[in-house]
Amino acid sequence: MEGVMSEQTFTATIEKDQRIEPRDWMPDGYRKTMIRQIAQHAHSEIIGMQPEGAWITRAPSLRRKAILLAKVQDEAGHGLYLYSAAETLGADRGDLTRRLIEGRQKYSSIFNYPTLSFADVGVIGWLVDGAAICNQVPLCRSSYGPYARAMIRICKEESFHQRQGYELLMTMMRGTEAQREMVQDAVNRWWWPSLMMFGPPDAESPNTAQSMAWKIKRHTNDELRQRFVDMSVPQAEALGVTLPDPDLRWNDDRGHHDFGAIDWSELKRVISGDGPMNTERIANRRRADEEGAWVREAAAAHAGKRAAT
């Protein structure tokens, strides 16, 4: 009887567009879906520190170094809020990290591409963070309260990052011819992977319907992808770069840009572990975890001694 009442309360809360909080009753499927979604997001923040983090020591001016260091630090902070949000659902941070390292949980495939020049730092800010914002802004209204609140803070910081990335590209485009070529090359490499960040087409997205009903997800993958394309085109024009898609053009009838077919076989390849950097990203995370084990054990031992006295 209590279960029925609880389920009614849960459904009514969702229907009224109110938030589910950690102590509220929720269906097991909802709990599992939320843990998976938040953990994947947290893992993406932590793995996402690597491609840009690799440029901190090599940043070509002290101002850019400070901006990049602060950005990568923000990503660690996002990972921390998100793991904490997952812990409100009964998950454990150490366990989630093990799942990541063992390949049992995913992270965003975008981070399996290499960062080949400093222009990549700018393009990641502009396109990758831009796509992330398109995906994440609706999550500020996610039905799970702790996640929605974490997303508000994360979206604010992501919008700084995006703007910093775009400003770096604007500066580089006003520099030497070699710098302009670096920017165009980076745009060529990151454009299609950015479009893939919105996930498979709606027709092939198995979880979308349930997630929309639970108000975990607010827009479909294809809707968000279209929004991203429409917003990026004028940005590219203002920057003076060409987006690498010969089929990209405004469609007056639809009121949107048409764009070329996405190579989904590549996305599948990268997701299933054959991207250029999958092995290295996980190996780095594993190494940090293993090399830090003695430190975490020492902290636990010390805390135990303190508690005993």
Partner: peptide, 12 residues
């Protein structure tokens, strides 16, 4: 040390 710290709090 960035991305190599033993725990996220230390990373930050």
């Amino acid at each position: 040390w960035v991305t190599r710290a033993p725990e996220l709090e230390d990373e930050m």
